[in-house]
Amino acid sequence: MSSAQQKRRLFLKSTLASSTLSVAIAAGLITPKMVLAAWPKAAFAAKEIDSALQAVLGSAETTPSDKIKIKAPDIAENGAVVPITINTSLPNIEGIAIIAAKNSTPLTSSYQLASNAEGYLSTRIKMGKTSDIIVIVKSNGKLYSAQKEVKVTIGGCGG
């Protein structure tokens, strides 16, 4: 392949990539500043689970896995503090995302783990109403998911 051809290919590739980006910018989905920011604002502002996953982990295709264990209360009396503990035996974990399915912006948080980190994570999240907590684990480049329903009773006397 001559160098002119190579350049043309490169040019085509780069214009294709930049055109999808500019369409997204034109549509008001993302501003140039957000693309550069380390904190993925588009992912956290997404109202749909799939688009949030796409933005933060690069894919929305997940496989259910029984190797992810979620420890969370069955009934949370206060949706503002829902303790969650994740244990997973999946190998080579690169990232974890915690999603509260019915929150107005479902993605609560995402994590990147180093190679010496264990498949363990614990934190406390806010939930707007009763819904599933979905945990996505990126292992060996693939996404695995697990979910658990948490009932939220705000101001009620148990559900």
């Binding site: 503090v81 994590y111 990147q112």
Partner: peptide, 25 residues
């Protein structure tokens, strides 16, 4: 000098946040 865990959070993490992780070596 090595990052073990980096977290990206939204406002959906509870007030006065708690975070726990485990690592080896």
């Amino acid at each position: 000098d090595k990052v073990v865990l980096s977290a990206l959070w939204s406002g959906a993490i509870s007030k006065n946040p708690y975070l726990s992780c485990k690592f080896s070596d």
